[in-house]
């Protein structure tokens, strides 16, 4: 029997999902739905926009207004939806490659505009859908099908990236702590502005296998053992910080929101008449 949460929020005719066994995407998706449930949002008022990739398939499983767009463009589609109908709670689901490589330009500009969209990046450090190529978040030196001798690229810190670009709520969590993901998504939705929640998820099939990270449980254990709260992290020496995944809320600083500003502009013009 599916749980009440699945009954209430998932399109059961489209389940089971396409994700591999051991994939962390289900944990993130469940946490998002729990956040929506906990905030008491009406399903008709929620719009989930996704791009292309493993995680972006989540939109089809969820019983909201859902749109599965083109690769990298979820935020641009979402910008049109939110600006056209600011009453909708617009949530973007994207992967690390989708959000920060092909969609990187939209990510920084949606942040800059501070448009009220909550973006959840399922960061599994790899392109899973296409079979394991390196992404902008594949750690330097790690292997992928297109980095057979080890990745030479530096990695993006997505939270730092959107901070510099102007996002007003920024947090990171891992699938080892689904309650933390849920809380961060709730706070992201509550923030009237651009929110980014980076969730570190695991891909045992490609990233794990290529880099000998073990099975799904071992990868989860790794996330438990290597993640550290931002407050504790700040007290560590540079040496102790090596290899740590910093989690927690990094930034929560409201600023005027784009669609609100536009609505005020329209109102001011109506007054002039």
């Amino acid at each position: 029997m599916p749980s009440q949460l699945v009954n209430d929020y998932f399109r059961q005719e489209n389940l089971p999902h396409i994700w591999c066994s051991g994939c962390g995407n289900g944990i993130v998706t469940r946490a998002i739905v729990k956040a929506i449930d906990s905030l008491g949002l009406k399903k008709d008022d929620v719009c989930v926009v996704s791009g292309i990739g493993c995680s972006s398939r989540a939109s089809g499983y969820l019983d909201f207004n859902t749109i599965h767009t083109t690769h990298g463009r979820a935020l641009a589609f979402a910008t049109g939806i939110k600006l056209a109908n600011p009453k909708l709670n617009v949530i973007v689901i994207s992967g690390d490659g989708d959000a920060s490589a092909i969609g990187g330009n939209h990510l920084i500009h949606a942040s800059r505009r501070n448009i009220d969209i909550t973006t959840i990046v399922y960061n599994n450090n790899i392109y899973g859908m296409t079979g394991g190529q390196y992404s902008p978040t594949t750690p330097c030196g790690d292997k992928a099908t297109t980095a057979p001798y080890g990745n030479l690229d530096n990695t993006f810190d997505l939270c730092d990236l959107v901070k510099g670009a102007g996002a007003t709520y920024i947090a990171r969590s891992t699938i080892y702590s689904p309650n933390m993901i849920q809380k961060q998504v709730e706070n992201g939705i509550k923030n009237k502005g651009f929110s980014l929640i980076e969730t570190i998820t695991s891909c045992p099939t490609y990233y794990g296998r290529k880099n000998k990270k073990g099975d799904a449980v071992q990868m989860l254990t790794y996330l438990r053992d290597h993640s550290i709260n931002t407050v504790a992290y700040n007290k560590l020496s540079d040496e102790e910080r090596e290899g740590k995944i910093v989690v927690g809320e990094f930034h929560n600083s409201p600023k005027p929101e784009f669609t609100q500003l536009y609505d005020e502009l329209i109102k001011s013009m109506a007054k002039e008449d």
Partner: peptide
């Protein structure tokens, strides 16, 4: 992409 989104809305 954005005009498609707006049209959907």
């Amino acid at each position: 992409a954005t005009i498609i989104g707006a049209s959907v809305a």
